[in-house]
Design a protein around this nucleic acid. Structure first.
Lengths: 199, 199, 199, 199
DNA sequence: AATGAATGAGCCTTCATTCAT
DNA sequence: GATGAATGAAGGCTCATTCAT
């Protein structure tokens, strides 16, 4: 294949991506609130106007970045779960995948742990939908395990904290420099997760 | 006892408390970063100057509030642990106390979950000390259990996430309006915590 | 006549008219200064580039709209005056026509009352010329009346305010929603105008 | 009287007045919309913060200036009307006072003729109230004249345009440099006003 | 003729903090 | 101890206009 002149659409896409990437760096370094539009813009080597043309506002950038990231994490998780046949395999897969994805994408992981993003109502709705879809997809599989007695019958809201809570909390400590790599405890934590929800 | 004229010291104390209380409300409603000094000051019905006279800065207010709160939570937890004789009782007490304290003090719980406070180096040191003292106090007891074989030998960093991770994550969801009261699952989560670390 | 494919010229004309119409709506709703090019462009369903291709600038749109409107108002007024034989008939015709035109074209009337258009030197010259031509045309007729003693001898600048002042002021109030329709008082005001300048 | 040290209140008042005065100059020179906060602030030799401390926003300055000015104009007019005994004297007093006030305060007059101020709902309400009070006060006197048959019975909305319309329109032309001083025609216009509304 | 991405000067406003009274 | 006027750096955002496609 010979290199072809990029189309306008391609360039536009690239520009948006470069802004998102610059924003991620800034957000990780100083936090979303503390990041100025000028910081992102300088890093992405684009003009303020360009940033506003594509994202409408600073929060617009933060929101798109968040949503795109969540989508990637979720779809990766679901792909992995689809390949898991049994309850134990599935539950442990959640812990393993979360640990692996976080260590492979530390910046994105850090960003997902942010608590200071002021999402617009639209973004909130969007996120709630994504979460709902995701939970539904996961539970489709788990429901079968529960019925068959492979997993315990628990309040619906309890599964996620029981399975993911420890590894998430540990990851948070790791990102804050207060604990070792999640990969060192993922086996242990996967075992604990399975013990917490098995039938 | 007849009502006596409040001393100057008493009035000063009351004023400080009213500022801390106003600050807590603001921080919960809009976040620490997004809260302006003027917001607190208006709510506490005091002047800007008065606020600065007592706390030195906005972060000063946030820090004192955080530290006082952590101290209350920790000392309550330690009091409870002191009354627990066995490993299982102790581990479960952690989960129970965290759940109970959070449901009794939702605003303070929400504040402790904030991730956007820009602590001064002094405050950071202060907090690190508090945390160290607290961990030390807790581990003093746990170390005995581990030695006796009542609790498993695990990486030091793993105990807290395994024991508190699920209930913390669940509390976070509850504070965000996305799950029922922690009191409904605390028994279940205490059991899981014990399973995760028992010998 | 069967519908024919519109010529390029026709399409261009239509596009320009649709932009002018969209601009008029915007200017009336938010004022000229407060209207952004993007507002007009969105309303006219054309691209920014297209707007600039046809009008050169935002002020270009405002100016063309203003000039076209003034021309229509003036030529209508002159047509009516040409049909008036006597002084009284003429003076009253001014009041009647202004009232009728304004009630028939409220948006255009409102636009002519704007005071915040930053005309280019060229446009100013253009407008001064138009006004001069118009005044000259009107005065050609009035001068005869004055000479014959049908109208009073007054400072040149006094005629227009005396004749049109009240109906203009009333129209302004009506456009601001603070008075009834001009048609209800035009007879009265025409009479007053005539009394103010008759010989 | 010996010069005393100005109180804080006095200084605050003076600062507010100096800002209003600077704003008036700017608004007259470039229009309200085109005036930047920095323009006012530089001219008043105060900081941005100070301006916002006292007026809340740029529109806040424009509104207070407008309201204060209207109040002065109205109260002056009412004082003058109170001293007029007869209908003719009163009607002519309106024209004379408007002409005199405008020539004595050309900047304020120009400002009142602005059409591009974006008043807040509160300011609009305030202005409507002022206008209502003023109209009521004026009409209290006029109603007696109408009853006695000294003035004609006309639609309520018609009196002001008939009496003030010409002198206002003329003043506008004068302020725009397109006519001589109002004082040259005020006698003539007062006469016309009286003819337009006399019994 | 049409499109819309890109530009960057400039605007309004916020806010933590100081300090004279 | 209390008050609130004053400060000015910094931030988010708008917008007219250009130009390559």
């Amino acid at each position: 294949m010979m290199p072809t002149k990029p189309t306008r659409e391609t360039r536009t896409k690239a520009r948006k991506l470069s802004i998102l990437s610059a924003a991620l760096d800034c957000f990780c370094e100083k936090g979303v609130e503390a990041t100025a539009v000028a910081d992102i813009q300088r890093r992405a080597q684009c003009s303020v106007g360009s940033l506003y043309h594509h994202f409408g506002s600073k929060e617009g950038v933060a929101e798109e970045l968040f949503i795109v990231t969540i989508q990637k994490l979720n779809s990766g998780m679901l792909r992995k779960l689809k390949r898991s046949k049994h309850a134990e395999e599935s539950v442990k897969a959640v812990v393993f995948f979360y640990s692996d994805w976080s260590t492979r994408n530390p910046k994105l992981a850090r960003y997902l742990h942010s608590r200071d993003i002021d999402f617009s109502p639209e973004a909130k709705t969007r996120l709630r939908l994504l979460r709902r879809e995701y939970i539904a997809s996961v539970f489709t599989g788990f429901a079968g395990f529960v019925e068959r007695g492979d997993m315990a019958v628990l309040p619906a809201d309890a599964y996620v904290p029981l399975i993911s809570g420890p590894i998430q909390e540990y990851t948070r400590l790791w990102l804050a420099g207060q604990a070792g790599s999640p990969s060192q405890v993922k086996g242990l934590f996967a075992e604990a997760a399975w013990n917490a929800v098995k039938g």
